[in-house]
Amino acid sequence: MARMKFLCDAERCIECNACVTACKNENEVPWGINRRRVVTINDGSPGERSLSVACMHCSDAPCAAVCPVDCFYTTDDGVVLHDKDICIGCGYCFYACPFGAPQFPTTGAFGSRGKMDKCTFCAGGPEADNSSEERRKYGSNRLAEGKLPLCAEMCATRALLAGDGDTVSNIFRERVTWRGSSGLTWGWGVAYSKPGLRRGRGVEGKAAGKD
């Protein structure tokens, strides 16, 4: 069985937010909810990095451990899903989650939380695959159609990878081994047009000899 994982390559992510938009569109999530977000650290300074974050589908998920009504379950593919019929919208999963994945629509009185919504790895919920009920509550079930999550499929720079953990890490391992620059490629000239500039700064990287 596959063990589904997301991996965001921070050397490639350009903070375009296409994954956020793609997810929102594909799953038709309620207003105010973003199952995925892009976080940029040291924004605007040399060395800034961006990461696309959503539910990481933990092996031992804190949300599932803390849920007072025990509404989480892990599929055979290692995807952490939850049952909205059981969820009471208490918000505890959001406080326990390291990645801020669980989201809550503010529908109730006094701004109280509605039922939790989070990334499903485009795998729907406990209802029958691709039933209208499943679509209404959880959005798309692309996994049942043999497709991967749309956020990763849409990623223009292939920064966001989704799929079986082994495959994803093989791709990433190859990238790390043959990466063209060491990450000091700040500025247009350095990054694209003048390899000599890079060499002068000693930032050729491990692929220097790979012409």
Partner: peptide, 20 residues
């Protein structure tokens, strides 16, 4: 913590350590 285009509580925080 970083910046993000997504609004919401602590949405700029990459890893929330105290939840655990």
């Amino acid at each position: 913590a970083g910046t993000t285009q997504v609004a919401g509580m602590d949405s700029g925080v990459l890893i929330n350590i105290r939840g655990e």
